[in-house]
Each structure stands twice: as structure tokens, then as C-alpha cells.
């Protein structure tokens, strides 16, 4: 566990953990994962806070067999990118047989801690 606080990033994780997930949308409709001050696609600074949909859908996934030292005790594990409405999040899909993971499966998002380090990690659960 690191003592470093990454301010607004931690605030975003707190919101996900509390079930109050959100994202930003710029005037051009670009969906952005917080924290952001400005849209990297168009430069817009008028970012509107939008409620994160409760369920997302897996758009791609991998099963990591050779991890970094921070995930040594977690491997093999599934990392996925899921789209929640317009915005995509990257997280670890927990409690799942890697062979059962498919693109299009519905997931919910929460925060869990990595086995190796106890660091907080964006985590997906399969939505049943």
C-alpha cells in the first residue's frame, strides 16, 4: 500500500466504491473518465458531470499470465475494458473462469484491492 494520494483520482475511486460513479461529457459529446480538466479530443473545458450507467458491456479482455510484481499473487487474472454507455473503463474482472469471459457480457463496477499489494483497483463483477 502506498501512502501517496492521487487526489482527484482517489475521489473518483471513492465514488465508484460508493456506487456513485460518474464521468464527464464535453459539449462535443466526448465521454471522458475523470479526473479531467479539459477534453483531450477537442479542448473543451465545460465538462458536464454525468451519472455512470449501472451496468457496462465488455468490449475486449485478456487473461494475464505474466504479471508485473504488483500483481504477482493475483495472476492469472482477467483484465477487461468495458463500455458504460459512452465511456470506457479498464478493470479486473473478479471471480470468473477466464474461459467463460466473452465480449458483450454485462458487468458492474466496484473497487477491490489487489491481492499482492492491497492497492485499490477498479474491479468488474459479472452482472447476473
Amino acid at each position: 500500500m502506498t501512502d501517496t494520494q492521487d487526489g482527484s483520482y482517489d475521489a473518483f475511486l471513492d465514488a465508484l466504491e460508493a456506487g456513485d460513479g460518474y464521468y464527464y461529457e464535453c459539449a462535443d459529446g466526448h465521454a471522458l473518465v475523470p479526473p479531467r480538466r479539459v477534453c483531450p479530443h477537442c479542448g473543451d473545458r465545460e465538462l458536464e458531470r454525468v451519472e455512470l450507467p449501472e451496468t457496462g458491456s465488455i468490449v475486449t479482455h485478456t487473461t494475464v499470465a505474466v504479471p508485473t510484481p504488483q500483481f504477482e499473487d493475483d495472476a492469472p487474472y482477467v483484465t477487461a475494458i468495458a463500455t458504460f454507455g459512452q465511456v470506457k473503463l479498464t478493470g479486473i474482472l473478479r471471480d470468473v473462469d477466464p474461459n467463460d469471459v466473452e465480449i458483450g457480457q454485462e458487468v458492474t463496477v466496484t473497487i477491490d484491492t489487489a491481492e499482492t499489494t492491497d492497492d485499490r483497483t477498479i474491479t468488474f463483477d459479472r452482472h447476473s
Binding site: T62, V64, T79, G91, D119, R120, T121, I122
Partner: peptide
């Protein structure tokens, strides 16, 4: 948003491959 979600260099390309 990637390393802390378990993304390694091979994992990133695996996500793109799939």
C-alpha cells in the same frame, strides 16, 4: 487507469488483438 488495473505491455496488445 491501466497499470493499476493489471495491464502489462503484452496485455495492452492482447486487448487490441481481441
Amino acid at each position: 487507469f491501466e497499470i493499476r488495473s493489471g495491464v502489462t505491455f503484452p496485455a495492452a496488445y492482447a486487448l487490441m488483438a481481441r
